[in-house]
């Protein structure tokens, strides 16, 4: 579970080392997976026509077989169906959390990067303080105050990713603001607003698309972690973290109940990373 801010910096750096641009095997696989996840989220019945909540006590704890590819759970629900149908929960939570984190990050980062030294200093100290609540701590504190649940877990994940985004956006803004082309625009007689709108904002915001892609994968992992700990979505919701949490009790007898939902979390996160980097590299060389 790596921090998104660091991931993004890494992506930025690796983009410069000039790797070949042709479509790699990894990118192709990530594309196919991404498509699968997208269909799962938008039209799950297309890939898994069954009912994700439909119980069948006679078929409980069935190991993976031809009838039940990923096995069944304690009530005989088909894990594959649940995993596919759970995609939309996880993706919506991930996207929402990323939007919250990125939104806050943009506000904080822009304040720090644009409004002069005093604001920058203040925002920076504030971010430093937030970094002293590493990882899940900020999310747990938020849940302590507002109670567990899907909504609070989503906001909590968004909150805890915000400082990382803010720092990246601030750095990007400061770099762009000091770029030679901004000076060149001043020499051409452009006003501050024109420069801000035409040069600084586009060049700062374009990389955020990549950040967001990487961030969704990360946010899904975190939100699933909270659900797993019983602080987010609750069983029998077909959310992946909640499914894993339910499977925990039967870990000794029915490993498939935990394995497949987790596998999907990993695949989603990997897909997001690979696609994010690929987009980044292409944007850089386009």
């Amino acid at each position: 579970m790596s921090d998104l801010a660091q991931q993004a910096e890494l992506t930025t750096r690796s983009g410069q080392s000039g790797q070949p641009l042709r479509l790699g095997v990894a990118e192709g696989m990530a594309g196919v997976l991404g498509l699968f996840l997208l269909i799962s989220a938008v039209a799950p019945q297309f890939l898994a026509p069954g009912d994700p909540l439909g119980i069948d006590p006679l078929a409980a704890f069935a190991p993976p077989s031809f009838a039940h590819g990923f096995g069944t759970d304690e009530s005989g629900r088909d894990i594959y169906t649940r995993v596919v149908h759970g995609t939309q929960y996880s993706l919506v939570i991930g996207v929402a959390a990323t939007a919250i984190g990125l939104g806050l990050g943009i506000v904080l980062g822009t304040l720090a990067g644009m409004l002069g030294r005093v604001v920058d200093f203040t925002v920076n100290r504030f971010l430093e303080v937030l970094f002293a609540f590493p990882g899940l701590l900020l999310a747990l504190l938020f849940i302590l105050v507002f109670g567990p649940g899907v909504a609070t877990a989503t906001i909590a994940v968004g909150l805890s990713t915000a400082p990382g985004y803010a720092r990246i956006i601030r750095g990007q803004l400061i770099a762009v603001r000091g770029a030679a082309f901004v000076e060149a625009a001043t020499v051409l007689g452009r006003t501050r607003w024109q420069i801000l709108l035409r040069h600084i904002l586009p060049n700062t915001l374009a990389p955020l698309f990549v950040l967001a892609t990487l961030g969704v994968g990360q946010a899904i992992v975190w939100a699933a972690t909270l659900s797993y700990l019983g602080l987010g979505a609750e069983p029998p919701t077909a959310e992946w973290g909640a499914m894993l949490s339910a499977g925990r009790t039967y870990i000794t007898s029915a490993w498939w109940m935990s394995f497949f939902p987790g596998l999907f979390i990993v695949l989603t996160a990997v897909t997001a990373t690979v696609l994010g980097r690929s987009i980044d590299r292409r944007m850089r060389h386009a």
Binding site: A180, F181, A184, A185, R198, A206
Partner: peptide, 15 residues
């Protein structure tokens, strides 16, 4: 008043 820079690449908006 026009200006020409050493690092001409950096003086153009990359986008």
């Amino acid at each position: 008043v026009g200006a020409i820079y050493q690092d001409s690449l950096g003086s153009f908006d990359p986008r």
